[in-house]
Design a protein around this nucleic acid. Structure first.
Length: 447
RNA sequence: GUCCCCGUCGUCCAGAGGCCCAGGACGCGGCCCUUUCAAGGCUGAAACACGGGUUCGAAUCCCGUCGGGGACGCCA
């Protein structure tokens, strides 16, 4: 990915996405990462990726890999972090333990923390703690509601509050953009910044993503990780566009489709809305359909081919024809795989409902046999000729054209639905069409 | 239980006192196209949670109620 040029005259902002590798990259995390990334790119700043793996028992290298994979799939590149490193590393908290211990010792020495059964606990001062949230406005907590909290566990590992603050200070983070669920953690952290003598960053707490039942999005709602969406046949551009508009709006205009560059140009933190947002798969599908349409034949083909399995090498003209028919019909990459089947091989079986509905009338076999003859002999083998011939045959045999059309569709695909029949016949070619007519006639004869 | 956040069509958003008998998108209904399914075109239904204020005037400001969500760990 090309590096973007820094905006001249813009104060350098530094943002970070700091996932805990205790799970896959879920869509909520993905959106948080996206907002951080967009803001950093918008202002020519730096996007840091930091892995919060201080909970050794629950963290794993595998999960780290999954998170990086998810971010890469979305196209969210980080300027500092795992694999690229940077001037404020290391970027794994497990490799920064000495920094947290030093900070804890400092607070102990200054009387702002006390030992408690081997752990170190922060002493919450009296008063109230307030901060201004870019999304929510002024927020204040009475300190009496904040319990003295552990900052360093008895095993020497820091707790979340200490490690984030120490790292955000050390990494010069200017804007903390994270989930809403951290609002009530924020006063603790503000207190820590003050105790450590560091300025607080700007905070922007983005509302959570909910399932259709308004409950926090979880496994039982279906796919929740970006990797799963990749497998389901969604395009990264569609996911990015969808996620960007889930809880954020440019405020002006009716535009829904945004390229990455347009998102970067339009993104603002105060455009984030304050309420939770329901993850609406149907809208995601709509975006996906749109971006699928934008793909060139080549791009679409190389996205589909890996899903098709072993060798189906066909020439570009064949792909162009097939994709042309399938494009308006597919919302996900995976749907192409299914809808492509009739173009790759004859029907393995005939859908029972289709047979019952369209092939049960008396005389079908005779009609089909006559039609087979038409397909074999009529030339040239193009849409207009074939359609005219079929309609003429229907006329002479006293049946509706639809009867012959439906029957042919079943012969070609085994199914009740398909792309336009005559376009499909031309792509299949005369020999295949005749062969599949024979197949159905034989099947009906047996039945 | 305590504290915090939020409350506009089913869903996502627009709306920062008069431009709003509330606008866009997804979804849904109808019509057109049509050989099926889509796509596409046209069109329709659909919301300011409730109650008090403030104001000449409130979806927009204030208070309360109700509702939803989140946090209260030696998890992050």
């Amino acid at each position: 990915m090309p590096r973007r040029t820094k905006l001249v005259g813009t104060m350098s902002v530094r943002l970070r996405f700091a996932p805990s590798p205790t799970g896959y990259l879920h869509v909520g995390g993905a959106r948080t990462a996206l907002f951080n990334w967009l803001y950093a790119r918008r202002h020519g700043g730096v996007f840091v990726l930091r892995i919060e793996d201080t909970d050794v028992a629950r963290s794993s290298d595998e999960m780290v890999g999954g998170i990086l994979e998810g971010l890469r799939w979305l196209g969210l590149d980080w300027d500092e972090g795992p694999e690229v490193d940077g001037p404020h590393g290391p970027y794994f908290q497990s490799a920064r333990l000495d920094k947290y211990r030093a900070a804890a010792e400092q607070l102990l020495a200054s009387g702002q923390a006390v030992r408690d059964e081997g752990a170190i606990r922060f002493t919450v001062p009296e008063g109230r703690t307030a901060f201004t949230d870019i999304v929510h406005g002024p927020i204040a907590f009475e300190n009496e509601h904040i319990e003295p909290f552990v900052i360093l566990r008895s095993d020497g590992h820091p707790t979340y509050h200490l490690s984030v603050v120490v790292d955000d200070i050390d990494m010069r983070i200017t804007h903390v953009v994270r989930g809403d669920d951290h609002i009530s953690n924020t006063p603790k952290q503000v207190l820590l910044y003050e105790a450590l003598g560091a300025p607080t960053p700007a905070f922007a707490h983005v509302p959570l993503i909910m399932g259709p039942d308004k409950k926090r999005l979880s496994k039982r709602h279906g796919a929740t990780s970006v990797t799963e969406y990749a497998k389901l046949g969604y395009l990264p551009d569609a996911m990015v566009n969808f996620l960007a508009l889930l809880g954020w709006s440019p405020g002006k205009g009716d535009q829904e489709i945004f390229s990455r560059d347009e998102l970067i140009a339009a993104f603002t933190l105060d455009g984030i809305s304050g309420g939770n947002a329901v993850f609406n798969t149907e809208k995601l599908d709509w975006f996906n359909h749109h971006y699928l349409q934008q793909l060139t034949d080549d791009a679409l083909r190389s996205a589909i081919e890996p899903l098709l399995g072993a060798g189906t090498p066909k020439d570009p003209a064949w792909w162009a024809g097939v994709l042309g028919l399938l494009r308006p019909r597919a919302k996900r990459l995976t749907e192409y795989v299914d809808q492509l089947q009739p173009f790759l091989r004859g029907p393995a079986e005939y859908d029972a409902a289709a047979v019952a509905k369209h092939l049960s009338a008396p005389g079908v076999v005779e009609h089909l046999t006559a039609l087979r003859g038409v397909y074999e002999a009529t030339g040239p083998f193009d849409e207009a000729t074939l359609e005219a011939a079929l309609r003429a045959l229907a006329e002479t045999r006293g049946v509706k054209a639809g009867t012959l059309i439906h029957a042919t569709r079943i012969a070609m695909t085994g199914r009740m639905v398909s792309p336009g029949l005559f376009e499909m016949l031309v792509l299949l070619g005369r020999p295949v069409v005749v062969e599949r007519m024979d197949g159905l006639i034989e099947f009906l004869g047996r039945g």
